[in-house]
Design a protein around this nucleic acid. Sequence first.
DNA 1: ACCAGATATATCGAGCCGATATATCTGGGG
DNA 2: CCCCAGATATATCGGCTCGATATATCTGGT
Lengths: 214, 214
Amino acid sequence: MSRRSALLELAILGLLHESPLHGYELRKRLNATLGAFRALSFGTLYPCLRELVTRGWIAENTETTSLPESRTAATGSGSRRARIVYELTADGKDQFQLMLSQTGPAAWEDDTFNVHFAFFARTEADVRLRILEGRRSRLEERLDSFRSSAAQRRERLDHYTTELQRHGLESAEREVRWVTELIETERSTTPATAPTPAPTTAAAVTPPDNHQAT
Amino acid sequence: MSRRSALLELAILGLLHESPLHGYELRKRLNATLGAFRALSFGTLYPCLRELVTRGWIAENTETTSLPESRTAATGSGSRRARIVYELTADGKDQFQLMLSQTGPAAWEDDTFNVHFAFFARTEADVRLRILEGRRSRLEERLDSFRSSAAQRRERLDHYTTELQRHGLESAEREVRWVTELIETERSTTPATAPTPAPTTAAAVTPPDNHQAT
DNA sequence: ACCAGATATATCGAGCCGATATATCTGGGG
DNA sequence: CCCCAGATATATCGGCTCGATATATCTGGT
């Protein structure tokens, strides 16, 4: 079972959910729209696309722009040459929804969170809330370890390292506030149909912490 | 010519510049102190250490804590068993200073900037300023491409993706302000000379053949 | 005394990144 | 008009990194 970066597979299926795309354009959107994949290599993308085809989740349509011998300068859309356009299949849509409903610890880590969040419009409300709360727990956990380790070696670091730590801490605190606002928005816009047994609002969110020590 | 992640080599040399360390502790500091290397694998660290040894930049001292049959409970440092302690050599110090003076485009990218910044106390003032300005240019360049692409597809994105973009944009803007403040501080505190003092000896700035100290 | 967990070093396969190759289309200059 | 530079587009390869795993010692709890 080649894991093959389930995150990349999820991102590809999600982008193809909107419209069929060819590899080059897919890579650009992976870099731009999602927060991850800053410089995804074609040596990663194309093998992944091929595997998704063999699994039947996407289909490969060779774009035979039969454009005749004329230059077709009129069409500004510019179909340049035969491109391989990938399209989501029915099985691919099912798999995408299945992946979105997975709320494992992999959903709120640094790299994965942005991708999951970008597809929240197609994610169920309770899953959205669980991922946001997991993300906040993860951030606060890191904040705690940062602050405790900072207290230990007060005067050991020079000015620049201290400044680096301070900026990192501040960024993490800002993201906590951002996620908290998102959680409150989720709670106010969705009725209280929470399946979690936490009726009281003061239940301190009960984050779905990883009960499984990896 | 195995480049072997010059960034990791720089970070190791920089951390060993302060005190000799063994692999396990080195990995913890790589995760905690620097911003990069969130989960560096031992399968990456140990081969890198071995190569640094073969290049003569660090030395491998098997810590034969001859600690007698007594428990040595007094020493809080706790030498548990024979550990391999790596120590920076004179050539390693030269190499570290050489790497720090490299102001290539590799110094202000996302991953590399934090590491270079963490060692600014041992970097010359003009190099510091060049790296900070390069970092700011890089961030503003990304901000421009973000904003222009956001203008193109105004109403195409859903609420969540828009929110993700907005948060990313805001974070980048905050980092630009942070870097700008750092640049102004550099300009005001270093009128012409005087590198920032290191806590120890002042011989830290480019010694050509200085083979002693520590 | 025992077991769980932290400390510490080491190795291996799967798969990712960066460089590189190939080919077509577009735009600018001589 | 042609050629070159650059963007578009697909593809491959080797070196290296990651995650899992193995081994061994020390510490702390019961």
